[in-house]
Nucleic acid binder design. Structure first.
Lengths: 162, 162
DNA sequence: TTAAATTATTACAAATATATAACTATTTAA
DNA sequence: TTAAATAGTTATATATTTGTAATAATTTAA
């Protein structure tokens, strides 16, 4: 029984993913020059305040060397900054600068615009339904993501947690 | 009012996307050697039966030359086949072979397994809620995607539809 | 205090994705 | 029938992402 539900959820989520990816990436590519991961890092930092390099890698499932690359780019544009941990000097926290927060807001509103043209064609009832359901999916996935925080599998450098 | 709803939906969807991407791509990468687009093409073909090259590009928002590359790969593995249109000899339909259908089923069950380990930690109630809500989101996005079928923006070769 | 583990970086190589331009074959329309 | 438009391909350059290995600095544990 639970088995079947899981299959059904998988089916739904696997249909949602490419469509969502398409809609967003299209908006992002059309209106900014940032690659997806850069946007996602900024999103993660917005929600978590600050994250370690390893934490960012875990959140996005990106190998650590790639995290360094992404952050280097964001640093160069002064969108994030590094903070040292007082207790453990190996750890570096990353957080958005004011400029970064502003930029991310802009990006989000660009995406909203991009969505608007599509969503505005939905009937009000459908939009309401989508709001409620996307809310529920979002909540469940965030919960899931926490349970699923297993680092990045293929990477020797950041082994699968435990 | 509708404005605010759209912002909220955008916010939700933009949080859903990276988490979903992470969970899926992790499962896919860990268990198959197919890149995301290959999986998505197979998914689109599963749902639509057959699609033209241009249609595939539109569905996934991938430039045409990249569609050719993806299909070449799938052809080489005998997972899809080309069909000529009788009426218009420029058009080539792509559809899954039996082998391709079988392979995609395998992939989906691998993804289900990957999801299972995560989902099984959710409480039954949460799972039910996720099933219903993912269903609704899926339905809305599919509808949205049809309205949003505007080809691939940055490409001169496959201009913005109409 | 030495060995092991952890955090982040550097350095590559390879795979995948994006962006353009030019081209063939075919159909549509003036 | 010629010109314009469409479907798909080829070719090429660049950007992004992934996969490994090795390294330095620091902390933890034996």
């Amino acid at each position: 029984m639970t088995e079947k539900k899981i299959d059904a959820v998988t089916e739904n989520l696997s249909r949602i993913l490419p469509i969502l990816g398409k809609i967003f990436m299209k908006g992002v590519r059309a209106k900014t020059s940032y690659p997806p991961h850069v946007i996602f890092v900024m999103g993660a930092l917005t929600h978590h305040g600050k994250l370690t390099m390893t934490g960012i890698g875990n959140h996005l499932s990106v190998p650590k060397p790639q995290v360094t690359t992404l952050i280097d780019r964001l640093i160069a544009e002064e969108l994030v900054e590094r903070l040292n941990d007082e207790k453990d000097r190996r750890i570096i926290y990353i957080q958005l600068t004011e400029k970064g927060k502003g930029r991310f807001k802009e990006i989000k509103s660009l995406m909203s615009e991009s969505m608007k043209s599509a969503l505005s064609e939905l009937e009000e009832e459908m939009l309401d339904k989508l709001l409620l359901s996307s809310d529920a999916v979002c909540e469940a996935l965030i919960l899931l993501n926490e349970k699923f925080q297993q680092g990045y599998c293929h990477l020797t450098n950041s082994k699968a947690s435990e």
